[in-house]
Each structure stands twice: as C-alpha cells, then as structure tokens.
C-alpha cells in the first residue's frame, strides 16, 4: 500500500492504494482514524486493487469546511469513485466509514457492486442505545473496543509526525470531524434511505464489540433487502485487527 495525495474538487485528501486485478475495493475507515497501510489492507490488496481514502477533516485531508451534512460526504465519495474510471467498486466500510458506505450505496447504487459494513454507525434503536464513544475515558474506550485490550498495540494509524501535528492534535481533529455525523446521536436519517440499497450486503460484527450492540445486526439485515450478517469471534470493534484471518476469510468469501 502506498500513500499519495489526491485532489477532488475542494477536497485534497490522502489516499492509500495498492494491489491489482478484479473489482476495486474502496475501504472507508472508522471514526477514530485512518489505519494507514494496515496489514489487513495489504491482505485485501493481494486479490484486489484497494483504495483507502482518508475522510475530509481527518489527518491532513482537507475540505471539512465544505461539508455541512452527510449528503456532502456522500457526493464527495461518489465523485471520487467516478474520477477513477474503474466502474463499480466493492465498498468495505467500518464504523463511521460504514455509515458513509451505506449512504453511498443508497445514493449511487450503480457505483457499488457489493457492500461490506463492519459495525457501522447510522441506525438507532431506542431499546438498545448506541454507546457514546465521545464520553468514554481512554480505558473505558479500550475496554469497549477490544476483546482483548492488550491487542490495542496492533492497531495501525495514518498518523505521520512528519506532517507536523502531534498525535494528540491528529486525534483531536479526527474526533472533532466525527462529531459532525455522530453527535449527539449517530442517526442522520439513513434508515429511510436504506430501501435504495441494491448491492448485496454483508454486515460484520466482532463478538465482543462494546461500541456496536449485537441488536443492530438484526436492524441492519431487516433494513437492507437481502443483507446477511456474520459475527466474528475473538474480536471487538476492530475485527480486521483482532481477528485478521477470520475477517479476510469473511470478506473474500463474500466478494468472490
């Protein structure tokens, strides 16, 4: 995976890409950070061209001031895919990236061949409120994120000290951008729009995920026609890190 910058309209973003052959995979990262050249992205790149852009407002990816709501982000990703001229792509979205991926699949179904959502935000159940990640202290967040918090050091990050910011600033910028879509309740009306999703959809959840209650798997498979769900044992909110093999097997099995 190689990092490069890509300009798309008012957005100047960082994008990690690699791999070749078959339908391209667009990976959209979660609410905390882009994972950089993560091992699981490299594994996916063994079989597909993989493109993993950073969301505007995250890290050194600019253009956040041009985003008022989720529709602006959706249009940004629509244009990005169109600019590649590679035809429809498979989209894998995690957490906040899952929310963006589902919006994209609803608004631009012709651009999304298959859809994989990993603990996606975007729905809300009164009977199982989504935990509020912004109020969690670091140890509480770690306990919610990981099946085994000792695995936290395996998480990769797009943080790059050479870009000038401190790690604290990098995180502050990322989470501030996330509040635009997740605060105070991570529901921007996606439930109404999921009827427009036509791509075959797989929803994944780590069995020990403390940020994405199990009840949401059913909510997603009920809302997206034909969607399947799968629970990955031995993982929390980041099954692609904590249970990489199971994650790759599940994703490759669904995409092939």
């Amino acid at each position: 995976m190689k990092a490069a910058r890509e300009t798309s309209g008012a957005f100047d973003i960082r994008l990690w890409s690699g791999g070749s052959g078959g339908t391209p995979v667009l990976y959209l990262h979660g609410f905390e950070q882009h994972p950089g050249a993560a091992p699981f992205l490299q594994r996916l790149a063994e079989r597909h061209p993989v493109r993993a852009p950073e969301h505007p407002g995250y890290g050194s990816s600019s253009g956040f001031e041009h985003i008022d709501d989720i529709f602006d982000v959706t249009l940004h990703y629509r244009r990005l895919i169109e600019s590649w001229n590679l035809g429809p792509v498979d989209v894998v979205g995690h957490s906040l990236g899952g929310m963006f991926a589902a919006e994209l699949a609803a608004v631009a179904p012709h651009l999304v061949r298959r859809l994989v959502l990993v603990s996606p935000y975007g729905l809300w159940l009164d009977e199982a409120p989504m935990p509020d990640p912004f109020v969690m202290t670091p140890p509480v967040l770690a306990a919610a994120k990981w099946a085994d918090p000792a695995r936290a050091s395996d998480e990769t990050s797009a943080f790059d000290a050479a870009e000038g910011d401190s790690a604290a600033t990098f995180r502050a910028l990322n989470l501030a951008a996330a509040t635009k879509f997740l605060w105070p309740i991570p529901d921007r009306g996606l439930q109404r729009r999921l009827q427009y999703v036509t791509a075959p959809t797989l929803v994944l959840r780590g069995e020990a995920d403390g940020l994405f209650p199990a009840a949401y798997l059913n909510a997603w498979t009920s809302a997206v026609a034909g969607a399947k769900s799968l629970t990955i044992p031995g993982a929390g909110n980041l099954p692609m890190v904590e249970a990489e093999d199971s994650f790759i097997t599940a994703v490759e099995g669904f995409l092939s």
């Binding site: 912004f134 109020v135 202290t137 509480v140 502050a172 989470l175 951008a177």
Partner: peptide
C-alpha cells in the same frame, strides 16, 4: 464532574488548545 464531560472533541480549536 465526570471527566468524560470536560473536553469533547472539537469544542476547543486545535489552535486554542495548543
């Protein structure tokens, strides 16, 4: 005051926080 309520991301700009 619960420490979780003191410093939500984005409340203070990066420039001011620094």
């Amino acid at each position: 005051l619960d420490p979780g309520f003191t410093a939500p991301p984005g409340y203070t700009s990066v420039r001011s926080a620094q």
